[in-house]
């Protein structure tokens, strides 16, 4: 850990929404050329944590350091401007707008001078199509096409391509592989590895042990808003990681539970709680 310069660091960060405390005393670092995998059950606070890093939320208490100096991100624009690009868990694209406009939303390329700067549609479309194709989505060839006509995974790939393009220092991906097919997910993992080689700090959220193991150098497990475990690759076995991702319960126990249930219920899996 000491060999990588930390790009982003959190020190005892708390985040509350009014009376609801979501994050407690989170301390974390992610260094250049390092992938931090953020793991945890649903509702553990992973998205809230990365929104705090992306400038969407301000921490209630605690410090954020960038390159060792305390900073605060006043807005998502501010964080973006400092090279932090985020793919949020939901949304990120606008169905009734073109691929080019989606790609450059908030960071529009312009041509012309003074008050008559116009959106450079040709440039936006060209770059957007190039970048999306690099993600393995070769079906998109026209930047004027509306995103509403794309599949969910294609939209997700567009959002990732955008973050990869704009992320100069830090790339944050909140469950980027959730909607993706096997091939596209592999692409995303490869891109994460490439970003890491280029010296970017990557924060990667996933519920899939395979994906976490494939790219992670450093793992942090959140349970109910607090860091429950923080370890490096090789420190724990795959089974231990899987157990931690299930919120501390043993996967073997969970699986045994399901099997036991199926035996006593004529092979039907348990009904989800209503």
């Amino acid at each position: 850990m000491s060999d990588k310069k930390p790009v982003l660091e959190l020190r005892k960060v708390d985040k509350s929404f009014g009376p609801i405390d979501v994050l407690h005393e989170i301390s974390l670092k992610v260094g250049e050329g390092e992938v931090l995998c953020l793991l945890g059950d649903n509702g553990a606070g992973k998205s809230t944590l990365i929104k705090t890093l992306a400038g969407v939320h301000q921490p209630t208490r605690g410090e954020i350091l960038m390159d060792g100096t305390p900073t605060s991100f006043s807005s998502p624009r501010d964080a973006q401007g400092r090279g932090i690009a985020t793919v949020h868990q939901f949304g990120g694209t606008y169905p009734l707008m073109s691929v080019g406009r989606n790609f450059f939303m908030g960071m529009e390329p312009t041509k012309g001078v003074g008050p008559f700067k116009v959106f450079d549609r040709a440039k936006a479309n060209r770059i957007a199509v190039e970048e999306v194709q690099k993600m393995g989505i070769t079906r998109i060839t026209d930047g004027d096409r509306l995103v509403g006509g794309l599949s969910g995974g294609e939209r997700q790939s567009l959002a990732i391509a955008r973050a990869v393009y704009f992320g100069a220092r830090v790339l944050i991906l909140d469950e980027p592989t959730a909607a993706l097919g096997v091939k596209q997910a592999a692409h995303v993992l490869r891109i994460v590895n490439e970003a890491k080689k280029r010296g970017l700090a990557v924060i990667f959220i996933t519920h899939q042990v395979m994906h976490a193991m494939a790219v992670g150098d450093h793992f942090a497990v959140l349970i109910r808003g607090a860091i429950a475990a923080d370890f490096r690759k090789g420190d724990k076995t795959r089974e231990e990681i899987a157990d931690l991702m299930a919120g501390g319960e043993s996967m073997a126990d969970l699986e045994a539970n399901i099997e036991g249930y199926m035996e006593t219920h004529d092979g039907h899996p348990p009904q989800p709680a209503a």
């Binding site: 969407v56 998502p76 694209t93 606008y94 450059f104 939303m105 960071m107």
Partner: peptide, 20 residues
């Protein structure tokens, strides 16, 4: 360039906010 922002507001306000 700001014209897109108006569409983004109506398209998905949360994403627009996240996009800065």
């Amino acid at each position: 360039p700001k014209g897109s922002w108006v569409f983004a507001l109506g398209g998905d306000q949360e994403s627009a906010r996240n996009a800065g």
